[in-house]
Lab assay of single mutants.
Amino acid sequence: NRLGIIYEIQGMKAVVLTSEGEFLIIRRRKDMKVGQQVSFENEDIYNV
């Protein structure tokens, strides 16, 4: 599992900021809110 803070939500995608200072786009889940810490898997990351 990886951890990140939700920075922005766009439709079915969420932008998270990881503890390494990396911004990633992941698959959104219904319970996500901006500012929330979430765990996610590598499979949830969109390749940009």
Rank of each mutant, 00 (worst) to 15 (best):
Y46Q: 13
Q37L: 08
E43T: 04
G4Y: 03
G35M: 06
G35H: 07
E41Q: 10
M12Q: 14
E8Q: 09
E41C: 10
D31N: 05
R27Y: 13
G11S: 10
I6M: 01
I45G: 06
L24V: 08
V15T: 12
M12K: 10
V34M: 10
I26C: 02
G35P: 01
R28T: 15
I26T: 01
E8H: 14
A14N: 01
N42L: 09
D31F: 14
V16Q: 00
V38Q: 02
I6T: 01
Q37G: 07
E41K: 12
R29T: 14
D44N: 02
E20S: 12
V16L: 03
N42T: 10
R27N: 14
K30D: 15
M32H: 15
L3M: 13
I5K: 09
G35Y: 04
E43V: 03
I26A: 01
R27M: 15
D31T: 13
S19I: 09
R27P: 07
E22K: 05
N47T: 10
R28P: 09
E43I: 02
N47R: 03
R2L: 09
E8Y: 14
L24H: 05
M12S: 15
I25V: 14
V48W: 04
G21S: 04
E8T: 07
Y7C: 14
I45D: 05
E8W: 14
G35R: 03
I25N: 06
N47D: 13
R28A: 10
S19N: 12
Y7W: 14
I45W: 08
A14G: 02
M12E: 15
V16E: 00
K30C: 15
L17R: 11
A14F: 08
V16N: 00
K30Y: 07
Y46P: 07
F23L: 13
Q37V: 13
D31I: 03
G11E: 14
S39P: 04
I25G: 05
R28I: 15
R29L: 12
K30S: 15
I26F: 01
K33C: 09
E8M: 11
R27W: 14
L3E: 08
G4D: 02
D44L: 02
N42I: 10
L17D: 01
F23R: 04
S39H: 10
Q10Y: 12
I9K: 01
N47V: 12
I25Q: 07
I9S: 01
D44C: 09
I9T: 05
L3Y: 13
R28M: 15
M32Y: 15
R28Y: 15
G11D: 13
L24Y: 08
I9N: 01
R29H: 14
I45S: 04
M32R: 01
N42H: 11
S19D: 10
Y7I: 14
I5W: 11
G4F: 02
G21P: 00
R27E: 13
G11K: 06
V15Y: 13
I45Y: 04
R27V: 15
T18R: 01
A14H: 01
I26M: 02
T18C: 05
E8C: 10
Q10H: 15
R27L: 14
K33M: 04
I45P: 03
D44S: 01
L24C: 06
N47S: 07
N42D: 13
G35Q: 03
Q10I: 12
G4A: 05
R28L: 15
M32L: 08
E41S: 11
R2Q: 07
S39T: 12
D44H: 02
E20L: 07
N1G: 11
L24N: 03
V16C: 07
I25H: 06
G21E: 05
D31H: 15
E22S: 07
E41N: 10
V38A: 05
E43R: 02
L3A: 11
N42K: 09
T18D: 05
I25M: 08
V48S: 13
E8D: 10
G21W: 04
N47A: 08
S39W: 07
Y46D: 14
E43P: 02
D31E: 14
S39E: 13
I26Q: 00
M32G: 02
V15C: 14
V48Q: 14
G21M: 05
Y7R: 13
K33F: 05
S19F: 11
Q37P: 10
Q36S: 08
G35F: 04
R2E: 03
Q36E: 09
Q36M: 14
K13R: 06
F23W: 15
R29C: 12
I45R: 02
I5G: 01
T18N: 03
L24P: 00
Y7H: 09
E43K: 11
L17A: 05
E20G: 06
K13S: 11
I25L: 13
L17Y: 12
K33L: 05
V38H: 05
S39C: 12
Q36W: 05
Y46V: 13
Y46N: 08
I5Y: 06
L24M: 08
Q10C: 13
S39Q: 10
K13H: 13
L24E: 06
I26E: 00
F23D: 02
E8K: 10
R29Q: 07
Q10S: 15
L24G: 01
G21Q: 03
F23V: 13
D31G: 14
N1C: 14
I26R: 00
F40A: 03
L24F: 09
